[in-house]
């Protein structure tokens, strides 16, 4: 599935939609960025409630293609700006991390590498 499918097929709202569309290789679900740095894979989608500009920096470090912020957590403006500067796709949803992970698993589960 493509990054753009997160909005088109799953209905997650893009708060930063300026990105080069690409194929997702898997996903990772975590709220601790130290854990994301250690365990997330490149070209994956990060499912999280950690809405902070550091999430963007860590995503860019790892090569994460998209971030889905769950539970409608408020997203600081500087996080959106950082995501725009990095060309990182940033989505928000009312669904929990459990729900998002469950919905994405049939598409991305085998590629999650975990």
């Amino acid at each position: 599935m493509l990054v753009s499918d997160l909005e088109r097929r799953f209905g997650y709202r893009a708060v930063q939609g300026e990105f080069a569309d690409r194929e997702l290789s898997g996903g990772y679900t975590s709220d601790l960025l130290s854990d994301v740095m250690a365990n997330a894979k490149a070209d994956s989608v990060l499912v999280t409630i950690q809405a902070h500009k550091n999430t963007v920096a860590v995503a860019s470090l790892v090569g994460i293609a998209a971030v889905v912020v769950c539970n409608e957590r408020p997203i600081p403006d500087d996080m959106i700006e950082a995501a725009r500067a990095e060309g990182l796709a940033l989505f928000v949803t009312a669904e929990s991390q459990f729900e998002v992970s469950g919905r994405l698993w049939p598409e991305l589960g085998t590629g999650s590498g975990r």
């Binding site: 601790l32 960025l33 854990d35 994301v36 950690q50 902070h52 500009k53």
Partner: peptide, 8 residues
């Protein structure tokens, strides 16, 4: 470090 990866 644990929550945000590094010191902003």
């Amino acid at each position: 470090s644990s929550q945000l990866g590094f010191l902003p």
